[in-house]
Design a protein around this nucleic acid. Structure first.
Length: 119
DNA sequence: AAGTTGACGACGA
DNA sequence: CTCGTCGCCAACT
């Protein structure tokens, strides 16, 4: 088998697609730290596939297993909808892990200082 | 089956 | 500095 995509993923077909790698990368982030989409894409082998990362996480193939709240974009901002219950829920989750969430009036959104909490 | 959209990011003009 | 385009991969229509 020279096909690296041929591996068990729980569905019997197709191997570790991008979603699988993304899922593993997010899970690899230690508690109290955050990561960015671009960083995950970089780890998964395609540094430009930041979009695919966001798409994969938006679908959230493993709800409750993937700490999506720990994934932010390059500016430190989270998703505009958040599948976990909203930014309020997200802010609680992050602060509960020791991550500081600050409100940036410039953007009008809550952001995480990546310089301090970026894994 | 094909085309479009989307939790993004980097580069060019 | 801001705006527009390209690239990436999977899911949705």
């Amino acid at each position: 088998m020279a096909d690296p995509r041929k591996n068990e993923n729980g569905r019997g077909t197709a191997g570790p697609s991008f979603d699988e790698l993304v899922y593993a990368a997010v899970c690899a982030v230690p508690r109290g730290k955050v990561t960015t989409y671009g960083r995950i894409a970089e780890v998964c082998g395609s540094p430009r596939a930041s979009r695919a990362v966001g798409t994969a996480l938006h679908r959230n193939p493993k709800p409750g297993v993937i700490p999506c709240h720990r994934v932010v974009n390059r500016v430190g901002r989270l998703a505009p909808g958040f599948a976990f219950g909203g930014q309020d829920r997200q802010k609680i989750l992050l602060e509960d892990e020791g991550i500081e969430v600050v409100f940036d009036e410039n953007s009008g959104e809550w952001r995480v200082p990546l310089e301090r909490f970026l894994f």
